[in-house]
């Protein structure tokens, strides 16, 4: 055992499927390196479980480098754990101390039903995107870029909004399970650019309507989503979405 390795108690949400009720189950892990990522620590636990003949813990993960947005885990009361601006795969065990108890829960929202253990169904986001999170693509040659000058500030704001990876931490964190930061980012990235103007109004109307239909809660401007967003999406986007939506309603 190298120095600095730690023993931890984990309390992890286990749930067979969407129909059966789940509960928190305690597990012990030993000799965890501080250099492991949180997901690697769960991998170690899963190997223990498999070797014992128990069922492993289901959790979402894909790229393990902070860009796919799959690793949804609510760790010790915060989306993606105690650090800001990162996903769970970017969280390292050095953020914890030897002897700590760590509670891991899935995203909690009626619109994100649990599939199994820590995995949730985020297809509500896909259905919102399908309602307008795209632009009309013209065929033929691209015109000269100098014909459509875009101010740097607008381009930057659009790019920052486009950094959203759809992980759902905003919904998971929000006390109202509101998806407004996600939808606002997806509306903003197009509303700010010339390419997004064709469907500008219908996009705002249809995406917000779909968001409401999916049963997400209402924004009360606590600002928690902005703090927990791994990509630093700003509340400015929600204000922009509100403007886009009511202006689209007036027209």
């Amino acid at each position: 055992m190298s120095t600095g390795n730690m023993n931890l108690t984990l309390k992890i949400w286990r749930q067979k499927n969407g129909k059966e009720a789940g509960n928190l189950v305690s597990y012990q892990v030993k000799d965890i390196s501080p250099d492991m990522s949180f997901l690697e620590m769960i991998d170690v636990l899963n190997e223990q479980l498999i070797n014992k003949g128990d069922e492993s813990i289901a959790f979402d993960h894909d790229c393990r480098e902070g860009i796919c947005g799959m690793c949804s885990m609510f760790i010790n009361g915060r989306a993606h754990g105690p650090k800001e601006g990162i996903t769970t795969c970017q969280l390292h065990m050095r953020s914890f101390k030897d002897g700590d108890t760590i509670v891991v829960e899935p995203w909690r929202a009626a619109s994100f039903p649990v599939i199994k253990d820590l995995t949730v169904d985020r297809s509500a986001f896909d259905r919102i995107i399908a309602k307008g999170g795209y632009i009309s693509v013209n065929t033929g040659n691209a015109q000269d870029a100098n014909n459509i000058p875009i101010p740097k500030t607008e381009a930057d704001a659009a790019f920052n909004a486009a950094a959203c990876i759809g992980c759902g931490a905003c919904v998971a964190t929000c006390k109202n399970s509101s998806a407004m930061l996600f939808v606002a980012a997806k509306i903003s990235q197009f509303a700010l650019l010339p390419q997004g103007q064709v469907e500008r109004e219908t996009r705002a109307l249809n995406m917000v309507n779909q968001m409401d239909e999916e049963g997400f809660g209402n924004c009360t401007n606590t600002g928690a989503c902005e703090v927990e967003c791994p990509k630093g999406i700003s509340l400015e986007n929600i204000a922009r979405m509100n403007r886009e939506f009511y202006l689209a309603n007036i027209k």
Binding site: G77, R78, P82, V103, S177, G217, T220, G223
Partner: peptide, 27 residues
């Protein structure tokens, strides 16, 4: 709004650290 918001999260978190990301009075 409050009723809708409560319906949006039928199962609450066992641990939720709201103080880490927002002011108590905003919640």
């Amino acid at each position: 709004l409050t009723l809708q918001n409560q319906k949006a999260r039928p199962i609450k978190y066992a641990v939720q650290n709201g103080a880490a990301n927002s002011k108590w009075y905003s919640r």
